[in-house]
Design a protein around this nucleic acid. Structure first.
Lengths: 146, 146
DNA sequence: CTTGACCTTCCAGTCGCTGGAAGCTCCATC
DNA sequence: GATGGAGCTTCCAGCGACTGGAAGGTCAAG
């Protein structure tokens, strides 16, 4: 099948599919006599595999590893599990960072009257608080005037 | 002061400070006779402002807006509040996506025995589940064989 | 006078695509 | 057979927010 059909079947843009070929992630079996890429069921299958892994936040390099484990009949499932667990740890870390940002912003927003007066605790905070080297912004509630 | 000192004071790499000048975000007052950038207290202050806003996840373009609001004596605090609230919504969206990924991965990990046998539910899932067009991967618990 | 730290500029690379230009192929319609 | 439009090809450039490195100028200490 042509790349357009493969795109429809996988939900990936044709551009992305070509890109995956460029970087050697999923390479279609061959070309037709008109030089069009030719995708078989197996290619579509692998592209779907990648699409799903990407949607779970695995990097392209992770996907390469996962694909190679997938193709390896003798892989140990522990290797795959380790990748997934590392990914979970990344996600948890990211969530913690975002929660910290959110808490700070919510605090700032709560203290801002948000009308047409120029006085604004949010700007005051950004201007005066020096940032701690923790997850993001530990205290953030002391917006004292300079 | 030299860029190195400004870097120390703001916690930003000198490279980044030069970059911010390049894109016109924070431009130091002038140069010394030896062509070195010269940063004053106010410059450091603005760089700290940007550093803090960035640490709260505001984009560089957001920072540009925040700086211009900060410099505008007649701004309405509502404008700032709106930016912060939009940022909170972005963060919440991102957190939801990450939570969905995490849940799916945790489910997969739980079902993977993780030993040296090749059989692996994680790979099976990646290989066979087609992804829903929702937040990320709605069901993800039905790894049925094709 | 040399060494080494610090500063300058400029260019390239990161990651994962995405857009666009220029040109070829295919199929349907006139 | 000509024409038009969709779909395919390649290649190059750009996104955001830096980061690394090369090549060279400047400064202070020994």
């Amino acid at each position: 099948m042509n790349i357009g059909e493969a795109a429809k079947r996988t939900g990936l843009p044709a551009k992305t599919i070509r890109y995956y070929e460029d970087i050697g992630l999923v390479v279609p079996s061959g070309r037709r006599e008109n030089n069009y890429r030719d995708y078989g069921e197996q290619d579509v299958h692998l592209l779907q595999f990648v699409a799903r892994a990407r949607s779970l936040g695995f990097s392209v390099e992770n996907c390469r590893e996962l694909l190679s484990l997938y193709r390896d009949q003798h892989r140990a499932s522990a290797d795959v599990k380790a990748l997934a667990e590392a990914r979970i740890r990344d996600i948890e870390q990211k969530i913690r960072e975002l929660e910290a940002m959110k808490a700070t912003l919510q605090d700032l927003v709560a203290r801002c009257h948000g009308d047409d007066r120029p006085d604004c605790p949010i700007l005051s905070d950004l201007a005066h608080d020096t940032l701690q080297e923790t997850a993001c912004c530990a205290g953030a509630s002391e917006g004292r005037p300079r």
